[in-house]
């Protein structure tokens, strides 16, 4: 595999033993190449060179002074990079809020690899969806029927579509609104003035 297709990784970690160890372990896999190793954030920003990273591994201990959500803001040049924490032990939930994933130094190479690949996958798929948010008119009509408590069969008959199509509309409505339950969709429909309380009597 040429270097071009590999995931380029930066490691920012104060302990030289851990830095070098992680580099060694990750490079056992042909998909990864570690192209930058830094002891702290200062050197990450100061050292010149090719800094086009796909994945940034960072020990959260060195960013503790920042609020967790700000982790991404530490890397303005890398809006799309995956930022994963390097952990020596358990840390509280809040420290990890800003990170896309977590590696433990107790993981063996296979486990680290697996975790990184998993993070890469989920992130790419969630990014693909961002642009697709507004309900179509058809989806709004179906939503109104759902909110009124109609079954899939009744909705299919009413709108002259197959049950399969109803199910696929329901899936898309839930994905776009983030709302899964019928009761939730009913709330959504009233809050967005698609139906009134009287319609539901």
């Amino acid at each position: 595999m040429s270097n071009l297709n590999k995931n380029r990784i930066a490691i920012i970690e104060p302990s030289p033993v851990i830095r070098i160890g992680i580099k060694k372990i990750l490079e056992e896999n042909a998909r990864f190449t570690v192209t930058g190793i830094y002891s702290d954030l200062q050197s990450f920003h100061d050292i010149k060179g090719d800094k086009n990273f796909d994945i940034i591994l960072l020990n959260p201990a060195i960013v503790n002074c920042y609020r967790p959500f700000a982790v991404r803001n530490l890397f303005p040049g890398h809006p799309d990079a995956i930022i994963a924490a390097i952990l020596y032990g358990y840390v509280d939930n809040e420290t990890l809020t800003g990170f896309d994933g977590v590696l433990s130094i107790y993981d063996d190479s296979e486990k680290m690899m697996k975790k990184l690949q998993q993070i890469t996958k989920t992130l790419v798929s969630s990014r693909d969806r961002v642009n697709d948010i507004d309900l179509s008119n058809r989806e709004k009509e179906i939503l109104i029927s759902i909110a009124k408590g109609l079954t899939n069969k009744e909705i299919a008959d009413k709108h002259f579509i197959s049950i399969h199509t109803v199910v696929s509309h329901r899936k898309n409505i839930s994905r776009k609104t983030g709302i899964k339950t019928v009761a939730g969709l009913t709330l959504y429909a009233t809050f967005n003035n698609l139906i009134s309380q009287e319609d539901l009597q």
Binding site: T177, G178, I179, K180, T181, A183, G184, L185, L187, Y188, F191
Partner: peptide, 10 residues
Amino acid sequence: DDALNDLKNI
């Protein structure tokens, strides 16, 4: 969980 999540969203 689902219903709580819906309520939060709304």
